Simulated scan of single mutants.
Amino acid sequence: MKAGLLQAPNVMELRDVPDPKREPGDLIVKVRAATVCGTDIRIFRGRKTAGVRYPSVIGHEFAGEIVEADAEGPFRVGQRVCIDPAIPCGACAYCKLGHENICQNLTAIGYEIDGAFAEYVRVPARALATGNVHEIPENLAFEEAALAEPFACVINGQEKVAVGPGDSVVILGAGPIGLLHVKLARFSGASLVIVSEPSASRREAALIAGADFTVDPTSEDLRAIVLDQTRGLGADVAIVAIGVPALADMALHLVRRRGRVSLFAGFSIGESAPLDINLIHYSELILTGAFGLSRIHFERALDLLARKRIDVAPFVTHRYGLPSIAEALATAERGSAIKVAIVND
């Protein structure tokens, strides 16, 4: 089969590789849509290495059609499925506490297991046993189903800062993740959503997604605007949805006393930033990270997408075939797209 083979940092080539070999209990899935995540770009550039192998196939947001399965198994050939790529061990201290997204033995498709930037992907039997495989409802396109994974991560992130009815929320960054945060905050009852984003096209996308106001941080005073819109108090919640370290401290200055700040975005290896620790202390701020997703987050995300409570179809603005994977990654990295999908007929 054809696959985008990550040979080393900055080196990905379309190659002929052996078809995935199915063991008892496994599925072989023909990838119909795989969307490009910002984390894929960081892996490609060598700025994220945990779980990454060379050579390997990356890509963890995907959906497709089963082409090989056990005759007596829970899934059948021809079924449309999407897969939660993060497979917890279920036995470590964190899994026992219910925090499987930070499982000590977490394995994931697109990391330790070859991923979806390929014609076919092997879904290991363990992923079936843990409930990571989901049938796609007929009303949901493959591209939309592929976005259940990043949307599940967003659900996890907003759960950590308890976005709810009446909240004022500031979101820093209006890439695909930032736009998902806009939609979920609005769905969760936020009364005010402000988005900071330097790109004019992405600011427009944020307004379409449901933001009340957008701010160009290169030419406008974001903090002044937030204070003006919140009666001088600051927002209830600030979410850093793009991996720019300096935004962490900025977010602290955008929230009210006892406000909640989510460092949702991943940052590159070795990056750090100063934080106003006195502000955290004296204003009793809640500062948290958010990593990945759990299986319940994936189920909730897929359900909201299937019921059309959250519409992600407009997010996929660029599509490429697998032979154009280099161009797909370059487009995603430039930020000229909202979401890039690699599609296979």
Rank of each mutant, 00 (worst) to 15 (best):
R231G: 09
A330E: 15
A306R: 02
P85N: 08
L192G: 02
G266Y: 03
A290F: 00
E271K: 13
A91N: 14
S268F: 00
A330S: 13
G166R: 15
A127P: 09
F62Q: 04
L147W: 01
G59Q: 04
E135W: 05
I338L: 13
R319C: 08
S219T: 15
L302M: 05
Y120T: 00
V343K: 01
V237F: 04
T39V: 08
V255L: 10
L147G: 02
P198G: 12
K21C: 08
K96T: 09
L172T: 02
A125H: 09
R202L: 08
T331F: 02
S324N: 14
K21Q: 15
R42E: 15
R202E: 10
I155T: 01
V17W: 07
D228C: 06
Q7H: 14
A93W: 13
A127N: 09
F62E: 06
P176I: 03
P323W: 13
I87H: 09
F142L: 03
V195P: 00
I28C: 11
G232T: 11
H281T: 14
I155P: 00
V57S: 03
V67Y: 07
F142V: 02
F291L: 12
L254D: 09
R202T: 08
E299Q: 13
L233I: 03
V193P: 02
L305N: 00
G4Y: 02
H297K: 00
I109F: 04
V123I: 15
P274S: 09
A224N: 07
I338R: 00
V215L: 09
A162I: 10
V343C: 12
F75Q: 04
E23H: 13
Q158V: 10
I83S: 01
E149I: 08
I242S: 10
I208T: 15
R53I: 05
R260L: 07
I208R: 14
E333N: 13
L233W: 12
A34T: 11
R47D: 11
P9Q: 05
I296L: 12
G335D: 11
A185W: 06
V163T: 14
A246Q: 14
R186C: 04
V237R: 09
R45P: 01
Y320C: 07
I280A: 12
V340T: 10
G78R: 07
C153P: 01
L252F: 10
A209D: 07
E72V: 04
Q7K: 15
E271I: 01
L322K: 06
A265Q: 04
P55Y: 12
A332G: 10
